[in-house]
Simulated scan of single mutants.
Amino acid sequence: MPARWKDSGALRALREITRIGARLHHVLSRRTGLGPTDLTALELLSIEMMGPAELARHLDITTAAATGVVDRLEARGHVVRRPIPGDRRRTGVHITDAGRREAWLHLTPMFAALQANDAQFTEEERAVVERYLTGAANAINTVVEGDPRDLVDGAG
């Protein structure tokens, strides 16, 4: 850590959340029998339909690898490919009810606990937490989306 790093309870809690989040992905992967990339794809597709190329960009993998992910999820009945209306050249990947059930089956206890935790806060407190977490997500994204050379050059 940089010499001027100033730790706080909020930063420690955030590090713990990221550590547990990484572990959660491995646990869910083991329980569902889906690889980590397949699981992330299912999570993304539960939010919105996308084409294989777009899925590849979100997963940071090649389009050929994304096709393999979709093939595996389709074989398990978790997704289907459908033509995108108005563009006969493109295919959209849609999560099925079975795929949604698979995700929810394992995540429902966590979502219930998160809602119970959220209910303890006032709207004003939630706004502060949201602002903090959005800033934290943006900070993490500087590494995920950024060029490591920019980070080193900017640190000096």
Rank of each mutant, 00 (worst) to 15 (best):
M1I: 08
P2I: 08
A3C: 01
A3L: 09
A3T: 07
R4H: 11
R4C: 07
W5P: 00
W5M: 09
K6H: 10
K6S: 11
D7H: 06
S8D: 04
G9T: 11
A10V: 12
A10C: 04
A10G: 04
L11H: 10
L14D: 01
I17A: 14
I17S: 08
I17L: 14
T18P: 03
R19Q: 10
I20Y: 05
G21Q: 00
R23F: 11
L24Q: 12
V27D: 13
R30N: 07
R31Q: 10
T32K: 11
T32M: 11
G33S: 01
G33H: 02
G35K: 15
P36S: 15
P36N: 14
T37E: 11
T37K: 15
D38S: 15
D38N: 13
D38R: 11
L39E: 05
T40M: 15
L42K: 06
E43A: 11
E43N: 06
L44W: 01
L44E: 04
L45Y: 02
I47Q: 08
I47V: 09
E48F: 07
E48Q: 07
M49R: 14
M50G: 06
E54G: 12
L55R: 02
A56I: 04
R57L: 12
R57T: 12
L59H: 06
I61H: 01
T63N: 09
A64W: 13
A65F: 06
A66T: 07
A66E: 05
T67R: 15
G68R: 15
G68C: 07
G68Q: 08
D71N: 13
R72N: 03
R72D: 00
E74F: 03
E74G: 03
A75N: 03
A75M: 03
R76H: 10
R76C: 05
R76G: 03
G77R: 05
V79C: 00
V79W: 01
V79M: 03
V80G: 01
V80I: 15
P83F: 04
I84L: 09
D87Y: 04
R88Q: 03
R90C: 04
G92I: 05
T96A: 02
T96W: 11
D97W: 13
D97Q: 14
D97L: 15
D97V: 15
G99H: 09
G99Y: 11
R101W: 13
R101S: 11
E102I: 11
A103C: 10
W104M: 14
L105T: 15
L105F: 13
L105I: 10
L107Q: 08
P109L: 00
F111Q: 03
F111T: 05
A112H: 07
A113R: 14
A113S: 05
Q115R: 14
Q120I: 06
Q120H: 12
F121D: 10
T122I: 06
E124R: 14
E124C: 00
R126G: 00
V128R: 06
V129E: 05
E130Y: 10
E130T: 15
L133V: 00
A136M: 00
A137W: 06
A137F: 08
N138E: 13
N138M: 13
N138K: 12
N138P: 00
A139I: 08
A139R: 05
N141Y: 12
N141Q: 12
N141H: 09
V143S: 04
V144D: 02
E145Q: 10
E145R: 13
G146Q: 08
G146S: 03
D147C: 04
D147S: 04
D150L: 10
L151F: 08
L151V: 09
L151Q: 02
V152C: 05
G154V: 03
A155Y: 07
A155C: 01
A155V: 00
